[in-house]
Design a protein around this nucleic acid. Sequence first.
DNA 1: CCACATCTGTAGCGTTCACTACATATATGG
DNA 2: CCATATATGTAGTGAACGCTACAGATGTGG
Lengths: 197, 197
Amino acid sequence: MGTMGRPREFDAKQALDKALDVFWRHGYEGTSISELTHAMGISPPSLYAAFGNKEKLFRSALDRYAEVRKQVWTELMSEPTARAMMERLFDRVIGFYATEGNPHCCMLVKGTLTSGDCGHVLADHMSAKRAESEQMLVERFTKAKASGELPEEIEPKDLAGYYMTVLDGMSVRAASGASRDELRKVAALAMRGWPGQ
Amino acid sequence: MGTMGRPREFDAKQALDKALDVFWRHGYEGTSISELTHAMGISPPSLYAAFGNKEKLFRSALDRYAEVRKQVWTELMSEPTARAMMERLFDRVIGFYATEGNPHCCMLVKGTLTSGDCGHVLADHMSAKRAESEQMLVERFTKAKASGELPEEIEPKDLAGYYMTVLDGMSVRAASGASRDELRKVAALAMRGWPGQ
DNA sequence: CCACATCTGTAGCGTTCACTACATATATGG
DNA sequence: CCATATATGTAGTGAACGCTACAGATGTGG
């Protein structure tokens, strides 16, 4: 059975990707509905009919962001060693942030800092997405420990927290204009701290 | 000669500190004039007469922030070794972010991420303040290299960039609710990467 | 006591915000 | 062809924004 009523004249997925791009660059509170409707190529009533309201649209965009990110990270997790995975992850992140035209920052980092000091409605959602990524590192490091790549005294959770922190910091520095070369050197020094041997 | 006209009934420095606190917690765009006037205990015309406008007030607050920060850092720079200085700096930062009631984030990190993707008028000002702090590390590490504490192959600039990145990342994680213990473990792992021996 | 200069509170300026009422257009179900 | 259901564009809602005109208050210099 086909749905009744006038069919929508735009593609919701494409529109969501456009919204994601704007939110990514300007943050939640820094993005206005008129910016969104312009970028998405639709009028306000269409936006509200399809996505609810600004907050729900942001949540949907965030889900989409996390989905794409998870795909990329999952691919990297299959690297033969955890160390190679981490090096490739740095390369990938740096390659993205330091490329002209791309947003220079992780959307979750920007979102976390943009939404007030605490208690913002969106904070939990973003924390959850951040935790998802971190958990992927924890699991990969646990595997590495089991296979003998990492020494016994290293806690996978701590190591994951450390590398997430470096990644978050690189996001901040990229946003404030750090070059590809500077970021590469940060990654190199972060990898100097790799445990073992 | 005394100044003519009715004297102001509030203390400008105290008012600026109040404004700093609000900007620190909510960022530039997340702070409204009415929040500021309420926190500062003055009315809008008084605010505008004393500080120009919102942007100029933010710049003044930022200058004040950087001034206090520079005092703290300067004190730490006199630690006998660069390594001890770095460890104390981590302790200090963690102690601040993880304490109830304090802002959970560096004001410059929040400000950098809050002001649009690029080209914001305030971005340059914040980049400059960030560079000032980083330069203090560069100079301390240069001294450490000269005294033999750091090996020849280490570039002070790179090492400073790395530790600033970790600090920035800790700011992000503190803002998203990281505990004192988690931050301590991050610092410990960051110090594992200390060059030498 | 009288200009003059500056601060203070009220009240409101124009603009932008997130969001929506309404009329119209276009599909399906009978 | 008609009733129903959903999408669309225009145009505008009340609220909050940054900021300021204005009148009254309070100081200094003559």
